[in-house]
Design a protein around this nucleic acid. Structure first.
Length: 235
DNA sequence: GTCCAGGGCCGTT
DNA sequence: AACGGCCATGGA
């Protein structure tokens, strides 16, 4: 294999700098006193197979009615919810998913995110996965970026980068996640793994948007000396 | 006009 | 277990 998760992290950090992730509207939460963790949870649903600018439009609409709120989404009518999140696409099913998630938090945790996250990481993960509309990537994004739990997020970008460099050719979610976690856990202290996981996933997303795109920009890529995909192009 | 984006569900094999 | 169709908007 051309590289490892740990080397990937060091190279991406060196070339791209510290990422600013997960993007959250801090001003809004300071002003309204709402919980930024729930904006991350909502964003995790809205960004499913959707570009971030469209998600921001939907989040912005939700803020005009102060709807970044478990209780309010749990009791709002679907017509209103669908209208607000329309720009994020797939708005019919995403409205259902936001409702499912909010109802779950309301019914089981009285809308209290501290209670929800105060549990063993695998238990929370299983709870999230039991909610219709929450799959592995959404669950892990919520755990890592909202809950600050040490779990590595795999997404389409991660798979693409892993396949090209390559890091690993088996793109099964759980196997890839275990590979990253085992490799990084050996290299970093337990108290810093959460920030390493957060930064690396963010860096991979930025990297995949800028250089390792669907049509990759291998000429300008800092990995082109070691990357199997870049080498294949120059032969 | 075509392609693409920070997935997941469901029905079919 | 694996795969295909489906969901939808807005920017490049």
């Amino acid at each position: 294999m051309a590289t490892t998760p740990q080397k990937l992290y060091k190279e991406l950090l060196k070339n791209l700098g510290k990422p600013n992730w997960w993007p959250v509207d801090k001003k809004y939460h300071d002003k309204t006193g709402s919980d930024p963790r729930f904006e991350i949870i909502v964003g995790a649903i809205l960004t499913q197979n959707t570009n971030w600018p469209n998600v921001e439009k939907a989040l912005s609409n939700l803020k005009t009615q102060k709807m970044i709120d478990v209780k309010k989404i749990a009791k709002t009518d679907m017509i209103n919810l669908k209208k607000l999140i329309r720009p994020s696409g797939f708005f019919n099913q995403k409205a259902e998913r936001l409702k499912n998630l909010s109802m779950y938090l309301k019914d089981n945790y009285y809308c209290d995110l501290d209670k929800f996250f105060d549990n063993d990481i695998q238990n929370i993960r299983n709870e999230l996965l039991s909610i219709n509309g929450v799959g592995p990537e959404t669950a892990d994004s919520i755990l890592l970026y909202a809950g600050h739990k040490p779990i590595f997020v795999i997404d389409a970008y991660t798979k693409r980068v892993c396949e090209r460099l390559p890091i690993y050719k088996d793109l099964d979610y759980d196997k890839l996640q275990n590979l990253f976690q085992n490799n990084l856990l050996k290299k970093y202290d337990a108290h810093e793994v959460t920030s390493v996981y957060s930064e690396l996933h963010a860096l991979i997303v930025d990297f995949a948007k800028i250089l390792c795109k669907k049509k990759p920009d291998c000429q300008n890529c800092f990995f082109n000396e070691v990357c199997a995909h870049a080498k294949r192009l120059t032969q």
